[in-house]
Amino acid sequence: MNKKFYNEDSEHQEIIKLLKDLPKVTASDNFEFNLMTHINNKNFKIKSEQKQSNFFWVLVPATGLVISAVVIFFVFFNQSNEFNLLLQEPAKIMGSVNNNDYPKNLNDVILDQKPLGNSYAGAVSKKKSATSEPKQSKTLRIVVKPNDVIDEEYVNLPFDKSKSVNVDAAIDNFSKNSTQPQSTLVGGVRKQSGFDGFYIREQLNRKFLKEWRARLDSINKNLNQRVNSLR
């Protein structure tokens, strides 16, 4: 009935013998002296418990966790600002997608396609030649639409191309040949630019207008009365 669950000592006789044969470790000779010195000096600091109260081991992973959390927060915060289309106005997004961006017939654009090389650049240049280029000095601007369609548009800038000059070349020319006539820089004196600069639009002061209108009316009324009296 007394079932033996563990074979206890008989099974591991050799292990027990090996362990018993291990040399006995003894305390140092001054162990008692040190101990009594501690006690007489009432120095009851327990070294092993003092070491336990050191919480540095808690701070190390905690600091690492906080730093990584801050880094992750900033990374995701910046990304969400850059790519969140919902933050953009929907009208702008829809308005930017125009049917005119897509050519209805490729033949309208690509008149003479070359077999190799500048396929799209060729198309763009042909389109440019096919469409009537304005004779006025306009600046051509390549625009990349939100739907990745590349389009070009002419913009009226207040600079006259005929008067434009390469500034570096002009300075270089001036330093070499001072006798030659100087080029005119952009916005020179020959022709005044239509650009008046920026001006601030003031809001109407209705009260002020009413006041002046009333004054003008009274003056007109007075004048009419005088004219009538003179007649």
Binding site: L22, V25, A27
Partner: peptide
Amino acid sequence: FKDPLMNYVFRFVGNKDVASDIVQDTMIK
């Protein structure tokens, strides 16, 4: 008890200096 405790603690923790400190602390306690 200093020697039996020293032997026991040393075999348990595996370091003589640490074992000595522990036995000293035991006696203080």
